[in-house]
Design a protein around this nucleic acid. Structure first.
Length: 774
RNA sequence: UCGGGGAUCGUCUAAUGGCAGGACCGCAGACUCUGAAUCUGCUCAUCUAGGUUCGAAUCCUAGUCCCCGAACCA
C-alpha cells in the first residue's frame, strides 16, 4: 500500500508531533475479553496498529478485564489469535488492566486523601435516583461529606472483604449538578466477590471502566487513546481522572494521554453487538463463534476471508466521525479482489447434470493437463470421459436470445477440454434428466482446428472420476439491511444463509488440503473448511460468489435498497405558533435583555446607531461583548463595519473563548477596523492580521509593517503578478478562455497569494479579466 | 428537556476561503477458453434559509434532521 492514509486522527497526530506535545506515537487496542472480536474490532485494530506502524510508534494489546463476572480466559486466547492473524504485532507482552490493580488502588487512596473521593453507602436504586437525569440535577449523597479518615478506613475495609457485594462503593467527588451526567460523582470502585481469571481471589473490589481506563493508558505511556463515538461523554471524566491522579513516582502524567473518538463500523445485513452475537451462539442459531456466517474475525477466517482482504476493507471505508452504515458490498469487493489474485482455478459442479457424448470411444479416458491458473506454469491432470457432468442451470430448453450456454443443437466449449454439441434431451416422466450430445474430437484443449469460437465456455467434471464433495454456500445472515433497527433482530434472520449442496469436484481439486483457496470456475471463491474437511471427504465453504452481471436475481437478498432521502417536505407554516416549542436563541437573548438593563440599554443604543435588529441582538448577547464593542466604537465610530468584522470574523476566531481571554482589547479591535475602513489594508490581509491579533495580540499598525501586510495600490505591480500567474498556469488560462469561468477564482487566489494579500481582490479581478480577454 | 457529537453522489470518504476529487455500487461498450478478471466511457452529491467575501462545502446567524449519554457494563 503506497497511498498514505490520512484522516482526522493523523492530522491530530501530525499537529501533536509538530507542536512537541508528544515525541512518539503510542496507541493501544483494549478489548474486554467477554466475547469474540468482530469485523468492527478489525477496523479498530487496523486503525490503532496502522497508526503505530505509520508513525514508527507502538501499539499495545491490552485486555480490559475489570469485570470478572463477564470475562473469561478463553476469550483472551481467541482475541490474541485474531489480532495476530490479522497480521499485527503488539509491543511487548499482552497487557491486562488487572496488571495495574495495585496502582489503581493506590491512586484511589490518594484521591480519598485529597478529598476527591468518598465511600457511599447508598444502594443502587438510591444512587440512580439521586443522580438525577437530563432534566433534573442530582442531589448529594448523605455520605458525601464523610471525613477523609473514615473514607480511608472504609475503603481499606472494602478491600479487606468485610463487606458483601453492593454494601458500598467508592465515588469521585465532582459535582452532582454537572450537566454531563457521567460527572455526577461517578463510581470508581464496586465490591465484587468474584474469581478473576488472572488475579484469582486477590481482589474483591474492582475498578470501573471510567476510572481504570485512563490510568491504564497513562501507566503504559499511551499518547493517543482511540475509542468509538459512544465514549465522547466519557472523555470529560477520562480527563478528570488524569487531572486528579499522578504517576506512582509522583509526577503529573507525561505524556498525558488524550482520548479521541471515531465512528464504529456499522455493516449492513448483520449485527455487530457482542451481546447479540453471543445470543446467536448461545441459542445455537449459528454453529459457534466461528460459524462462517458470523461477522466475527474467527467466522470470517473459517469462511476463507483473508487478513489482507480485511485490512483492505479497513482502508477502503476510512476513519471519520460520521455515523455510517457501510454497504456490505464493499467487504465483498475486497474479498473478491484479494482472492482473484491468489486463488488457483478448479472445477466443480453444484448441481450435476449428465451429458453423454455419444461419439466418444467407450471406456476411454483422456487426461488433460490444465494450468491451475491461466498464464502460470503449474498444471493438474483433469480426466475427461464419455459422460461429463455440467451445471444444471447451464442448460436451457428454451434459451433467451443472448444465451451463451448449452441448448439443443448448440455448441459450447468445455473449459480446457473439447467442444460439445447437445443433440437430444433425455426425459423421465416428462422431466429432463440428462442430455445426449457429440464431441468435436478435433478440439482437444479447447481450440477448434477451423478456428471457430463457440458462444460460451462451461465448467464441467468427468462423471466417472469426479469426487463427491460438500459445498457450503453462505449468504447474508439477515434479510434486511438493519436487523436491529427496531425491535427484535431474530425474526430477520435469513433462513437461507447456509445452504449445503452435494456437488461433484474434479479429483485434483478434491485432493487439496484443508484451508486452501480456489476459485471454482464460474461459481465462486471457495475455501476448504479447516475444521470439517477430511481426507476423501472434502468440505468447501463458498467465501463469496463471482460478480454476476448476467443473472439478475430479483427477490434475493442481494438487492440493495436505495437509501436516497425523500425530498424534505416543506414545513407548512400556518402562523400558529406551537406554544410547547422550545425557545429559540433569539428569544432566549430577548429574555436575558429584559432582565439585564445594561444589555437592554446597549440594544437601544445600537439600534439608534442604525444597526439592524438582528445585529444589535447578537451584540447584546453578553455584557462583555457590549463592553468590548463599546470600546471599539470609541476608538473607531463605524458601527457597520465594526459589527461585521466582530460577528463574522472575530466570533469565528475566538471559538467560544471569553473575550477576556484573548490578547486584544476592544479599542485595539476598533483601531484594527479603522485600518480597513481607511484603505490601509485589504480584506484578505485584514483576516490574517485579525487572526494574529486574536492569537498573539500586538499593535495593529505596527504589525502591518512586521507582517508586510500594507496595501499595494500600484497598478503595475499587480499587473506583473497577474502576468506571472497566467504564465505559470497556461493550461488553466486556455481553459478559462474556452469558457471555464470557475478558474477565475484560482487565478485570483494565486495572485493574492503571490502578493501576500496586499492587493485588493477587486482590482486583481479587473486586471485579470482584462488580461485574459487579450 | 440538559450535555456531547454529526450532516458532501445510492454507499464510504476527500477537498482546512480558490476547478466538489477518489473508491464501491449501477449503467454502457471493448476484450475474453470463467456472462469472472481486465480496459474504456457514463450517470450521480455539499441538510435548509439568510449573511460576510472578488470568491463559501469550508466563516457567521437562525433553523431542520440524525447519533450518543441518566449499569455497582465496557
Amino acid at each position: 500500500m503506497t497511498t498514505r492514509r490520512s484522516n482526522f486522527l493523523t492530522e491530530i497526530i501530525d499537529a501533536d508531533l509538530a507542536a512537541g506535545r508528544v515525541s512518539r506515537v503510542a496507541t493501544r487496542f483494549p478489548p474486554e475479553p467477554n466475547g469474540y472480536l468482530h469485523v468492527g474490532h478489525a477496523k479498530s485494530i487496523c486503525l490503532n496498529f496502522g497508526l503505530a506502524r505509520d508513525y514508527a510508534g507502538t501499539c499495545n494489546l491490552r485486555m480490559d478485564d475489570t469485570n470478572p463476572v463477564k470475562e473469561d480466559i478463553d476469550y483472551v486466547h481467541a482475541i490474541q489469535k485474531d489480532v495476530a492473524w490479522l497480521g499485527f504485532e503488539w509491543a511487548g507482552e499482552v497487557r491486562f488492566a488487572s496488571d495495574y490493580f495495585d496502582q489503581m488502588y493506590d491512586a484511589a487512596e490518594a484521591l480519598i486523601r485529597q478529598g476527591d473521593a468518598y465511600i457511599d453507602h447508598q444502594n443502587v436504586e438510591e444512587i440512580r435516583l439521586n443522580r438525577g437525569d437530563f432534566t433534573r440535577h442530582g442531589v448529594d449523597s448523605p455520605h458525601r461529606t464523610r471525613a477523609i479518615a473514615e473514607n480511608l478506613q472504609l475503603f481499606q475495609a472494602m478491600r479487606a472483604g468485610v463487606f458483601v457485594d453492593g454494601t458500598c462503593v467508592l465515588r469521585a467527588k465532582i459535582d452532582m449538578t454537572h450537566p454531563n451526567v457521567l460527572m455526577r460523582d461517578p463510581l470508581l470502585y464496586r465490591i465484587r466477590h468474584a474469581h478473576h481469571h488472572r488475579t484469582g481471589d486477590k481482589w474483591c473490589i474492582y475498578p470501573m471502566y471510567d476510572y481504570a481506563h485512563p490510568l491504564e493508558d497513562a501507566l503504559e505511556g499511551i499518547t493517543h487513546s482511540i475509542c468509538t463515538l459512544e465514549f465522547e461523554s466519557n472523555r470529560e471524566l477520562y480527563d478528570w481522572v488524569l487531572d486528579h491522579t499522578r504517576h506512582p513516582q509522583g509526577e503529573a502524567w507525561n505524556p498525558r494521554p488524550r482520548q479521541y473518538e471515531f465512528a464504529r463500523l456499522g455493516l449492513g445485513y448483520t449485527v455487530m453487538s457482542k451481546r447479540k452475537l453471543l445470543q446467536l451462539v448461545e441459542d445455537k442459531r449459528v454453529n459457534g463463534w466461528d460459524d462462517p456466517r458470523m461477522p466475527t474475525i474467527a467466522g470470517m477466517r473459517r469462511r476463507g476471508v483473508t487478513p489482507e482482504a480485511l485490512r483492505d476493507f479497513a482502508d477502503l471505508i476510512g476513519v471519520a466521525k460520521n455515523n455510517s452504515l457501510v454497504d456490505i458490498g464493499k467487504l465483498e469487493f475486497c474479498v473478491r479482489q484479494d482472492l482473484e489474485k491468489r486463488a488457483p482455478r478448479a472445477m466443480a459442479v453444484l448441481q450435476p447434470f449428465s451429458l453423454q457424448l455419444t461419439n466418444w470411444p467407450l471406456g476411454h479416458t483422456d487426461l488433460l493437463e490444465i494450468p491451475w491458473k491461466n498464464g502460470e506454469a503449474a498444471t493438474r491432470q483433469v480426466p475427461f470421459g464419455r459422460e461429463v457432468l455440467i451445471e444444471r442451470e447451464d442448460f436451457s430448453e428454451n434459451p433467451p436470445a443472448d444465451w451463451k450456454r448449452l441448448s439443443v443443437g448448440k455448441e459450447v466449449r468445455l473449459f480446457g477440454a473439447y467442444f460439445v454439441r447437445c443433440t437430444e434431451v433425455i426425459r423421465e416422466n416428462g422431466e429432463i434428466v440428462g442430455l445426449l450430445g457429440t464431441v468435436d474430437l478435433e478440439s482437444r484443449g479447447g481450440e477448434a482446428k477451423d478456428g471457430r469460437q463457440p458462444a460460451g465456455t462451461l465448467h464441467w467434471v468427468d462423471a466417472s472420476s469426479s469426487i463427491d464433495c460438500e459445498l457450503r454456500l453462505y449468504d447474508r445472515l439477515f434479510t434486511v439491511e438493519q436487523p436491529d433497527a427496531d425491535g427484535d433482530f431474530l425474526p430477520h434472520m435469513n433462513p437461507d444463509a447456509l445452504q449445503v449442496l452435494q456437488g461433484q469436484m474434479e479429483p485434483a481439486a478434491a485432493a487439496l488440503p484443508p484451508a486452501t483457496h480456489v476459485q471454482l470456475m464460474r461459481v465462486g471463491y471457495f475455501y476448504s473448511d479447516p475444521v470439517d474437511s477430511a481426507p476423501g471427504k472434502p468440505v468447501w465453504n463458498r467465501v463469496i460468489g463471482l460478480r454476476d452481471t448476467w443473472t439478475k436475481a430479483p427477490g434475493r437478498t442481494e438487492g440493495r435498497p436505495d437509501r436516497r432521502k425523500e425530498p424534505q417536505e416543506a414545513k407548512k407554516d400556518d402562523g400558529k405558533k406551537d406554544t410547547a416549542q422550545k425557545k429559540n436563541r433569539a428569544e432566549w437573548r430577548a429574555e436575558k435583555r429584559a432582565s439585564t438593563p445594561e444589555l437592554a440599554a446597549a440594544y437601544g443604543r445600537y439600534a439608534a446607531l442604525g444597526l439592524e435588529a438582528e445585529i444589535a441582538d447578537l451584540l447584546t448577547d453578553e455584557t462583555d461583548i457590549v463592553a468590548f464593542f463599546d470600546a471599539a466604537l470609541r476608538a473607531h465610530p463605524n458601527p457597520g463595519s465594526l459589527s461585521r468584522w466582530f460577528l463574522n470574523d472575530l466570533e469565528g476566531l475566538r471559538k467560544g473563548r471569553p473575550l477576556a481571554d484573548i490578547p486584544m482589547d476592544g479599542a485595539t479591535f476598533g483601531h484594527f477596523v479603522a485600518l480597513l475602513d481607511g484603505g490601509r489594508i485589504t480584506v484578505l490581509a485584514g483576516k490574517q492580521l485579525l487572526a494574529h491579533l486574536v492569537a498573539q495580540g500586538g499593535d495593529p499598525v505596527a504589525l502591518i509593517g512586521t507582517l508586510g501586510l500594507g496595501k499595494v495600490d500600484d497598478h503595475a505591480a499587480i499587473q506583473a503578478a497577474v502576468d506571472a500567474v497566467l504564465a505559470a498556469l497556461p493550461g488553466e488560462a486556455d481553459r478559462f478562455r474556452a469558457g471555464d469561468q470557475k478558474l477565475l477564482g484560482v487565478f485570483i487566489g494565486a495572485v493574492l497569494k503571490q502578493m501576500r494579500g496586499s492587493a485588493d481582490a477587486g482590482a486583481v479581478r479587473q486586471i485579470l479579466l482584462d488580461r485574459l480577454k487579450a
